[in-house]
Amino acid sequence: MKHLKGGVEINVLTRKEHPPPHVHIEHQAQGWEIKVEFSYIENIATTYKITHLFGKLPTKARLNTIVQEVMSSRRECRDVWWDHVSDAGLANKWVVVNAGKASPATPNVAGAFSVSTAVYDDPTQSMKFNGIIVGECP
């Protein structure tokens, strides 16, 4: 999908994928792959799995740069993920909506509810939970 400096490529894979929404970043010459999770309701991306086959692992600075690249590409990542996987990874999660913005929550937070269905709309980049539009993704 997107090439970074130094032989690194960001890919949203589209076969047999599963929540949480994530991208695969690999460096074939150095023998590693990193999965970076992204969110439909938060302005975050985090490394959640590193596979090391051979060679040197990326430095912490390189990991941070990769995560920032995913952050800057998150809207494109969301669109591709939704078009192929159609799962925002939010079913049975608790959220609260304030001023059109959803945030993770726990059952004891006032106004929090459990998500039974989550639908992403590519053109407006908004989420609909349990049939109710909650607003644009960050």
Rank of each mutant, 00 (worst) to 15 (best):
F38V: 05
Y40G: 08
S39Q: 11
Q28G: 00
H24D: 05
L13P: 01
D83M: 08
D83Y: 03
L53I: 01
T65S: 07
S86M: 12
K35Y: 08
L13C: 07
H18W: 14
R75Q: 07
K60D: 02
D83T: 14
M71D: 01
A61S: 13
A88I: 12
R74C: 05
H22S: 11
W81R: 06
T46I: 05
Q68S: 05
I44P: 04
A61K: 15
H27S: 00
V85C: 08
N92Q: 14
L57T: 03
E33S: 05
A91Q: 13
H24M: 09
H18N: 06
W32M: 02
N43V: 04
L57K: 13
E26G: 01
P20I: 13
I66S: 00
G31H: 07
L90F: 14
M71G: 02
L53V: 05
Y48M: 10
E26V: 07
T65C: 01
N43R: 15
V36T: 02
D79S: 07
V85A: 06
Q30E: 04
T47H: 09
D83K: 14
Q28F: 11
I34W: 04
N92I: 08
Q68K: 15
H84C: 08
E37T: 07
E69C: 06
E69W: 15
T14G: 02
K60A: 03
T14D: 14
R78T: 04
A91R: 15
E37V: 12
N43E: 15
K35E: 10
K49E: 07
D87H: 12
K49A: 06
Y48L: 06
A91S: 11
T14E: 15
W32R: 06
K93I: 04
I34K: 00
R78F: 12
H22W: 12
A29E: 05
G89N: 06
A61Q: 12
K60W: 09
H52D: 00
E33W: 08
I25Q: 01
S86H: 14
H84T: 12
V70E: 02
E37I: 13
T46C: 08
C77L: 11
V67W: 11
Q68N: 11
E33P: 01
K35P: 01
V36N: 00
V67E: 09
I50E: 08
H27E: 02
K35C: 02
I41T: 09
L90R: 04
I66H: 06
A91N: 10
G55L: 01
H27T: 01
L13Q: 09
R74D: 00
C77I: 10
I44D: 14
P20G: 10
P19E: 02
H24S: 06
I44W: 15
D87C: 03
K16D: 10
T51C: 02
V67T: 10
V67N: 11
Y40C: 08
V80E: 09
K56T: 06
T59E: 04
S73Y: 15
D87I: 05
P21G: 04
P58M: 10
T59I: 02
K49W: 05
M71Q: 12
R74Y: 07
